[in-house]
């Protein structure tokens, strides 16, 4: 915060400007209605298009419609963690509070995305593979990712001092990323012994035709924008909460 004034003029307009909480609140407040509106629009168009106006797959029947939720949710489940990894690194290196708070704000959203991906996967799996749950490598790694989210959220909740919490969760996020990746490969290795080549998802098997492609892209954009909206809303809440705490502490001192 203090070093802001000592930044050379040439770098004044850099991206780091937005790391200033005040600036962030201004910009995000102005952007929020647009991003939120666009998210709602994309989601509505993508999902309605996908649900009502796409043909059934000749092999999977109407279950192919689940793809418009399943794939975007899975994508966001992973990307939310990647975003948390990046913002955690920024916090550790540059000590921008907004960055740490954005990571905190993203975690529950990422967890919900992961749960949606798992739930729709299970519902899809029942008619297609004849079981709700198979210990398929992909499913298993997603479940493990969900566990990492739980641990991360629990650690944030457990620590009182906000800066300590930000530091420790950032370290956990870094280490967790390495281990999540290791688990991904470990799980691949582990399941080869059971059933060979369990490539069970549609996207891998047959490249999707255009009829499914465009609604899917719309739906994915909707999920990305929704994620962005939620992270902005929740980060703003966290910043306000921090300020609230500071004011309350000052009151208590007086």
């Amino acid at each position: 915060m203090q070093h802001k004034d000592s930044v050379p003029i040439s770098r004044r307009m850099s991206l780091w400007e937005y790391a200033n909480p005040k600036k962030f609140m201004q910009v995000s407040g102005a952007a929020l209605p647009w991003v939120g509106g666009l998210a709602a629009l994309c989601l509505a168009v993508g999902l309605i298009w996908g649900f009502f106006f796409t043909p059934d797959d000749f092999r999977q029947g109407s279950t192919v419609k689940i793809i418009y939720i399943h794939v975007p949710a899975a994508l966001m489940g992973i990307n939310a963690w990647l975003m948390m990894l990046v913002t955690s690194l920024i916090w550790l290196v540059r000590r921008h509070h907004v960055s740490a708070l954005a990571a905190k704000a993203a975690a529950p959203v990422g967890l919900v995305m992961t749960v949606i991906a798992l739930a729709t996967g299970a519902i899809w799996g029942q008619p297609m593979w004849g079981t709700w749950w198979a210990w398929d490598p992909r499913l298993t790694s997603f479940l493990i990712l969900g566990l990492f989210y739980l641990g991360y959220i629990a650690l944030w909740a457990a620590i009182d001092n906000p800066d300590t919490a930000a530091d420790l969760t950032s370290v956990l996020c870094l280490v967790g990323s390495v281990f999540a990746l290791l688990s991904r490969y470990a799980v691949l290795f582990w399941n080869q012994g059971l059933h060979q080549g369990a490539s069970l998802t549609v996207t891998q098997d047959n490249p999707i035709s255009d009829i499914y492609y465009w609604p899917l892209i719309t739906s994915i954009s909707g999920f990305v924008l929704l994620f962005l909206t939620l992270v902005l809303v929740r980060t703003r809440t966290e910043i306000r909460r921090r300020r609230l705490q500071a004011l309350l502490n000052r009151e208590r001192m007086a």
Partner: peptide, 15 residues
């Protein structure tokens, strides 16, 4: 909390 944090990290080793 320690168990919740550590158990997912144990996954590759266990496998």
């Amino acid at each position: 909390l320690l168990s919740l944090l550590v158990l997912p990290l144990y996954v590759p080793t266990l496998i």
